[in-house]
Design a protein around this nucleic acid. Structure first.
Length: 680
DNA sequence: GGGTCACCAGTTTTT
DNA sequence: CTGGTGACCC
């Protein structure tokens, strides 16, 4: 058992408040994770709550995994058994697996990721507009997702006549939903929407889950969107033992449906809420916190709070004015060298944070030039890579042959003489007969105008799938079965044929091999493995992805981290470089001229500042190469909000480029900006 | 069916 | 400037 006295008074209050709604406003670095884990342990040990009655919801698998590990460390693995620590999505999969038949789906439903959704929307869109592009499909999908996040059904969707995309969405959304159901597939948003629907339509189920999860906790509550909120409200109905933890000042996911209002309204929505603020910070120096407080207090809609530390003020914050983006990168690296020598820091102690991923390039170039190891966070997800999706498509179809998107994906991959023309005929026949494509494939002789060779190919394809469907019923042999299937399909040869860069080809084949590794590690972890279980894990990205070999791991362990401000939430580093502190970058241009949500940009800035433990370095360029053009830049308005006595500023020795007249102009603009900034 | 060329757009992202 | 996509031609 842990010692309650090791917690500060607010933390202690949060841990021991167990009955009724609790809103825990946890500022950055205030020991939030510790409080959550202690609270779970407290419930288990002091209140005698059974782990089966505990539900903890997070947004990411990583957060869920860490929470489980930390509780296990304190009470041991046994005491945790039965406790549900899950992401919203995996919780919903769990509920749907058990009950989705009540909504007219089958248990082996497929989960559609972005690319599957896009294929489908594209196909539906082509029926309306022949020359529709992938971009159009993307926009429509975006609107469908936004609608689902707000619990707007296909029937309720209102298009605005001013917006052609929304008109098309109004047309496509109902068809999209209908097709999904015909394929026995659900998309990511459906996982939540359907769970809400299920619980609302079935009071017995709702009561069952309310009774089951007597104590509920939600992390990063400021990121919840309306469907998630509705789900929580349903589950916590009755006992109201809902503890939400979050920080309105770190709400940075508005673009994917999260609404700060949700956390701001919690007390109103859950009467009798106890509000506890965690403001003592255990991460950063006083000066860093003062800067963070000064910036964030400019936001209107927020719960008043201010971070403080019992430790010292620490170093001043540095503001480096750079000539251009290249100079910005050079000065970051200079600084890394200097700090590393001066304070015996490792490369892993540094993070470079930026607003947009494209900003990483200049830093990568310089780091590579200087032979400094770095890790770039973000970019293409492992399971979104084409060659990986191809294999997953096979597995999905083996489990659910009505999954038409994936069936079409593999129908002629690798090439087996069922070309686009034949596929088209099959699809049309299936649509007219109103029977699933799979059924038509099984009885392809019904489709008259196909060549005998095509019939033969289809029959072989069907036989192949039938054979492996059988074999995958044996979970113990799944790994061997998959290996043999990859052999038989000769996918590696197909890749070599398509990819003329042998290095890239090898990479892609390695990626395919990683699917085997992913399955192997799944088999180790799941006591009752199945193909369905594996696919769920893959779909929910609840997997470690490709395993790094030891050499890569060592390298990654001591490397500078490069990532977007969004990805940095929840992390901390001794030294943080917050780069691109310019109008149009942070705050981003779009937020100034289109979405008008400067407050969210300010929160993003706040998140960046509060990642730093000992030293914060802000950087901005006077000019920046954008789309091949040099653009003049002005310092970010957020710099103005930081009290000048917290900052040391220094300009670079590299003169700005351009004609002398332009230089003079730019310099005078810039320095008037600076003098305004420092009020002198 | 594959390869090449021209054109376009360019915030953030997890599940 | 770059990467990605789509159209068009062989």
């Amino acid at each position: 058992m842990f010692d309650l006295n090791s917690l500060n008074p607010q933390q202690r209050a949060a841990v021991s408040h167990t009955e009724g709604p609790l809103l825990l406003l946890a500022g950055a670095g205030s020991g939030k994770t510790r409080v959550i884990t202690c609270r779970i342990v407290y419930l288990l040990q002091q209140r005698g709550v059974s782990p089966r009655q505990l539900l903890a919801v997070t947004f990411t698998n990583k957060a869920a995994r860490e929470m489980r590990e930390r509780v296990e460390e304190m009470v041991g693995g046994k005491a945790v058994r039965g406790m549900v620590i899950a992401t919203f999505h995996s919780l919903c999969v769990r509920i749907l697996k058990a009950n989705i038949e009540r909504l007219g789906y089958k248990k082996n439903f497929s989960i559609y990721a972005a690319s599957d959704q896009q294929q489908l929307v594209r196909r539906l869109l082509r029926d309306e507009i022949a020359d529709a592009t992938g971009k159009d499909a993307e926009q429509i999908l975006w609107q469908i997702s936004a609608a689902k996040n707000r619990l707007v059904t296909p029937g309720e969707f209102q298009s605005s006549s001013r917006d052609p995309v929304s008109c098309m969405t109004a047309l496509i959304y109902p068809r999209y939903q209908k097709e999904l159901k015909a394929y026995n597939a659900v998309d990511f948003d459906d996982l939540l929407v359907l769970t809400v629907k299920l619980l609302e339509k079935n009071p017995d189920l709702l009561e069952h889950y309310q009774q089951l999860f007597r104590y509920q906790m939600v992390d990063e509550y400021q990121d919840t969107n309306p469907v998630q909120y509705r789900l929580l409200k349903l589950l916590a109905g009755g006992h109201g033992n809902l503890c939400v933890v979050g920080d309105d000042d770190q709400s940075i996911y508005g673009f994917r449906g999260a609404d700060v209002e949700t956390i701001l309204n919690f007390e109103r929505d859950f009467p009798g809420t106890r509000l506890i603020k965690l403001e003592q910070n255990y991460r950063s120096t006083g000066n860093i916190l003062a800067a963070a407080n000064a910036v964030i207090k400019n936001n209107r809609k927020r719960k008043e709070k201010a971070l403080w530390t019992a430790d010292g003020a620490g170093n001043l914050i540095d503001y480096l004015i750079c000539a251009d983006d290249e100079d910005e990168a050079c000065r970051v690296i200079e600084r890394i060298h200097a700090e590393r020598g001066r304070h015996q820091l490792e490369y892993a102690d540094f993070a470079i944070l930026y607003r947009t991923n494209s900003q990483s390039r200049s830093f990568e170039e310089q780091l590579r030039y200087e032979n400094i190891p770095y890790v770039l966070i973000g970019g293409q997800q492992f399971f979104e890579r084409k060659e990986v999706k191809d294999i997953i498509a096979y597995l999905k179809v083996l489990l659910n042959p009505f999954d038409e998107v994936n069936l079409l994906r593999i129908l002629n991959y690798p090439k087996r003489n069922i070309g686009a023309g034949s596929a088209d005929k099959l699809i049309r026949y299936s649509a007219e007969a109103e029977e699933p494509l799979w059924t038509i494939l099984q009885q392809s002789e019904r489709v008259a105008d196909l060549k005998p060779r095509t019939h033969e190919a289809i029959a072989q394809f069907v036989a192949l799938l039938e054979c492996y469907r059988q074999r995958f019923q044996q979970p113990r042999e799944m790994l061997e079965t998959l290996r043999e299937m990859l052999e038989e399909l000769k996918l590696a040869e197909e890749i070599y044929r398509q990819e003329n860069d042998p290095q890239k080809a090898r990479r892609r084949i390695e990626n395919q091999a990683e699917v085997l590794n992913a399955m192997a590690s799944y088999l180790e972890r799941d006591p009752e493995p199945s193909l369905a279980g594996f696919l769920d894990k893959v779909s929910l990205l609840d997997d470690d992805g490709p395993k790094q070999n030891d050499k890569e791991k060592k390298l990654a362990q001591n490397a500078v981290t490069l990532m977007s401000l969004h990805s940095s939430k929840g992390l901390e580093f001794p030294v943080v470089f917050l780069v691109g502190m310019e109008e149009g970058v942070l705050p981003h241009k779009k937020s100034i001229y289109e979405t008008f949500d400067i407050d969210e940009e300010r929160r993003l800035c706040y998140v960046g500042i509060t990642r730093a433990q000992r030293q914060l370095v802000l950087l901005g360029a006077q000019q920046r190469r954008k789309y091949g053009q040099l653009e003049q830049r002005e310092p970010s308005r957020f710099l103005v909000e930081i009290p000048q006595e917290l900052l040391t500023r220094s300009a670079g020795d590299k003169p700005p480029v351009g004609t002398p007249a332009e230089q003079e102009q730019s310099a005078s603009n810039f320095f008037s900006g600076i003098s305004q900034l420092f009020g002198d």
